[in-house]
Design a protein around this nucleic acid. Structure first.
Lengths: 333, 333
DNA sequence: CTGAAAGCGCTAACAT
DNA sequence: ATGTTAGCGCTTTCAG
């Protein structure tokens, strides 16, 4: 808070009115005469009066502010979710506080506690990798126990009882694979992935496998997993060189898609002729002008919008029975 | 703010202590006996006591919170600045509120006012394009007049009297051009730009021109400006086809660099043989694996760190004489 | 239509 | 070492 500024009390003295009359005038209350309102408002403008919203929030018991904790703002997916949330909240007269956990549980926990200590009316969380791996959610369940409205998105977990917003990873992967087969005419599709234990990866792999099976296509030797970018590149490169039937790559995460692009591009300069269609989950491929790339659009802004909507609903009617999990549709582009 | 929770008053009654003793115990005051502290802290834990920091902020008159308003979070430059700010502030025990102006002056102004109405101890701003074009800064100067500590970064202006952090655009452009000439052996360097009236563009163009002049290189017909992406692509393409001596492109902004890359890549597939070196200002080229690209690294995180540092300094010693403008070094990568 | 007064939860100066 | 008290600026009954 900034230095001392004009207060209601000061203005009320100057105008020979009571504090409450001044307060009501400024909030355009119907109790006050038009004349008085005019006097007060004009005087307030002269004084450069700025209401102390912190005091008002304190008194009223709510802040019209929502807290958001995300793992990483450099990932365009989260950045877009933030934009979706911000737009929705702004429209509804709410403000947004953002904190970046940087994939650390400690940072996440501290941010959440700070925010929940009076500064926000509710929280939106995408948990850190650390939290997901440790599978310990006391810091979140504690807040829920104290009545803090919370909505989780993207990375969710069953051990927390709250509203959630996700994309249908299984269906997204299934549909993408299906699209490669039916619309792009691919038959020998390999799936590539950077190892991570997160929930998403498993569901996406399932979607791929089942889509392949449903078309009687073989997935043996077609799932390439590595735990480093370099490792994945090598495996992919080797596979493409030895198995000339491969006609598509389905990358189930950011790095997998990027590495698929770089590897095929490099092979091409080395004289590799086969046409390889690339599809997958990727949020930072905009600048990579590549018309043949099939991107799973995770509708990040829509996720943001839906998340914010769900939270405000929860805040407004304190006792809704049971929690919802919303699924946001994906589409290929 | 969330439902009613345990308060100091409630605990003090239950423990037969005064409110102030409880308060002092929880803040580990040396005035209180070890025994009492222990009793209080244990009881507080049992009650799941969460201090109401909003009330504390209100009482104390400061919030340990900083407000940030940026034009666009999808631009990695701003996202990185945010990371730099957040890390620094977190380290110093401050929190960050972020708002996206989306290049709109109205949104910017509203966000700033809200934040300055008690929620923050100081503000960090990168003004919107609209604000820069209108050249109207009342909404910011008003806040400064009321004593709000403010630091501007990246897009600054002389009409606002406050601390500022920028990169040296002129020098960055000069050095890049110089680098193309001396280290890359280029002689016929064209400069490309999307028209925008912003300060940056002019300084960068000056840097380019003077670097060329200092080496007695001609810039006639070498400055390509357009106001649409398509227009720039066309001009560039035409230029490269007609003037085969061109050996480098210096893009003075994001889109200019991206279009230079796409255009040369496309020409190459059409049989264009000349080697064209590309350099410029670009924040989203990470994924575009292109080793020959020379990127002006704007050190966004460092800008964030310096901005936050300057602000906290200003907040702590209210009356420092005069305002500073810090220049953060750039480097090529 | 206007005013008086209580009080949100906490801190901090000032007793005791 | 512990308690008393005033009050941050505002909203909101309740009285007039």
């Amino acid at each position: 808070m900034i230095q001392s500024r004009t207060t209601l009390s000061e203005m009320s003295k100057a105008l020979n009115l009571s504090i409450s009359t001044v307060s009501k005038s400024l909030s355009d209350s119907s109790e006050i005469s038009a004349l008085t309102k005019k006097r007060v408002n004009e005087f307030a403008r002269q004084c450069n009066y700025i209401p102390n919203n912190l005091a008002a929030s304190f008194r009223k018991g709510y802040t019209n502010t929502i807290g958001l904790v995300i793992p990483n703002i450099l990932n365009p997916f989260y950045a877009k979710v933030l934009v979706g949330i911000e737009n929705y909240l702004d429209d509804k007269g709410y403000r947004l506080i953002t904190s970046i956990s940087n994939e650390s549980q400690d940072k996440e926990s501290k941010s959440l506690n700070k925010m929940a200590s009076g500064y926000v009316d509710g929280l939106i969380i995408c948990i850190s990798k650390e939290t997901e791996l440790k599978n310990k959610y006391d810091h979140i369940n504690g807040l829920i126990g104290q009545g803090t409205p919370i909505v989780m998105f993207d990375r969710i977990c069953e051990m927390i009882d709250c509203d959630k917003v996700i994309i249908d990873d299984y269906k997204a992967a299934y549909d993408t694979t299906e699209h490669l087969i039916s619309n792009e005419g691919c038959k020998n599709i390999i799936m590539t992935s950077l190892i991570n234990n997160l929930h998403h990866g498993k569901l996406r792999a399932e979607g791929y496998k089942n889509a392949m099976k449903s078309q009687n296509l073989d997935v043996n030797g077609k799932i390439l997993v590595a735990n480093t970018v370099e490792g994945l590149k090598e495996k992919l490169s080797a596979k493409l060189k030895t198995d000339k039937t491969i006609d598509a790559i389905f990358g189930v995460n950011e790095q997998a898609v990027l590495q698929a692009m770089h590897t095929t591009r490099r092979l091409k300069t080395e004289g590799f002729k086969n046409k390889i269609t690339i599809a997958g989950f990727c949020n930072q491929c905009q600048s990579d002008y590549n018309p043949s790339l099939i991107i799973v659009n995770q509708n990040a802004e829509e996720i943001g919008t839906q998340t914010a909507k769900l939270l405000l609903k929860r805040i407004k009617s304190t006792e809704i029975k049971g929690y919802r999990t919303k699924t946001v549709a994906v589409n290929l582009s």
